[in-house]
Design a protein around this nucleic acid. Structure first.
Length: 273
DNA sequence: CGGCAAACCTGCGAGC
DNA sequence: TGCTCGCAGGTTTGCC
């Protein structure tokens, strides 16, 4: 489900409804997701107040009054659902259930279990293995022309997989990588180092694509589900993603599909050089 | 170190 | 209808 815009959308929705809420108890309905839950996770969440939420890359961060941070990654299929009360019966893939002191319930469901949860002391976040090697946030100033130009110059492989490398820049996944390259007019198979001179255009395109998706509230992705349980309804139209054979919105040339590093890539062979 | 394929796990749609 | 196959938006691991 999620690239950066979807995680940001979930974070904002939860932030609006969860800031200041207190956790009464947490039920772990299995021992692990992508990796095991910390042994004392339930205990460290019990009776804690959620002071604020934030996001780093595709990780959602629940900042607790204990100075611990609950780190949650949605993987491919992870979703949070906030309801007036916890359900009487659970879905097979409801893995973590939070009972709040005000009676509401928050459930984390993840069919494929590529998601992750961990608890990290706030002052250890930046050095934690999950965060230590992450690149700059694409919507912040640190993702600058100078930075990207220098980073691309060092890379020999094709630009599209490089753009998805979270060490280069975080939050750009498979869909928005194709979309950003289309907007920038850069071919996904061009060598990253040869795209470096056009880093200015790429910075602008990445930001444009992500901001547009955030503004559409994550509704660009088929399977996106809001915390209310409401499914996304595909308002946003992609220019190239999943449009193999369809006409390029700019020049009508059929969009081409291919695979790079095991992932599907789409581009206009005429507009993107 | 860089690049790539495979792996993790389940669900779903396409095709037979 | 039911089976098999291929593919899915993320990240890590292990092999060149």
């Amino acid at each position: 489900m999620p690239e950066l815009p979807e995680v940001e959308t979930v974070k904002r929705e939860l932030e609006a409804k969860l800031t200041g809420a207190c956790i009464r108890t947490v039920t772990l309905r299995r021992a692990d997701l992508r990796s095991p839950f910390p042994k004392d996770m339930g205990q460290r969440l019990t009776n804690r107040r959620i002071e604020r939420l934030s996001r780093r890359a595709k990780y959602m961060l629940f900042h607790l009054d204990s100075r611990d941070v609950l780190v949650a990654h949605l993987g491919m299929t992870g979703r949070f659902t906030l309801t007036d009360a916890l359900p009487k019966t659970y879905d097979t893939h409801d893995h973590v259930a939070f009972a709040l002191k005000d009676g509401r319930g928050l459930v984390f469901n993840d069919a494929r279990r590529f998601g992750l949860m961990d608890i990290v002391p706030e002052n250890a976040l930046s050095t934690h293995a999950l965060f230590a090697d992450l690149g700059p946030e694409p919507l912040e100033k640190s993702f600058s022309l100078d930075y990207l130009e220098a980073a691309l110059a060092k890379r020999s492989g094709p630009i599209k997989p490089v753009l998805m490398d979270q060490k280069l820049v975080v939050g750009v996944g498979n869909i928005y990588a194709s979309e950003a390259l289309f907007l920038a007019g850069i071919s996904p198979i061009r060598k990253a180092s040869k795209a470096a001179p056009r880093a200015d255009k790429l910075v602008a395109s990445v930001r444009q694509v992500l901001n547009a998706a955030i503004e559409s509230g994550g509704s660009s992705l088929r399977d996106f589900v809001h915390i209310s349980g409401q499914t996304g309804y595909f308002q946003h139209k992609f220019n190239v993603y999943d449009r193999e054979g369809a006409p390029c919105p700019t020049c009508k040339t059929p969009i081409r599909g291919m695979r790079q590093a095991g992932r599907s890539t789409y581009y206009c062979p005429s507009c993107q050089k």
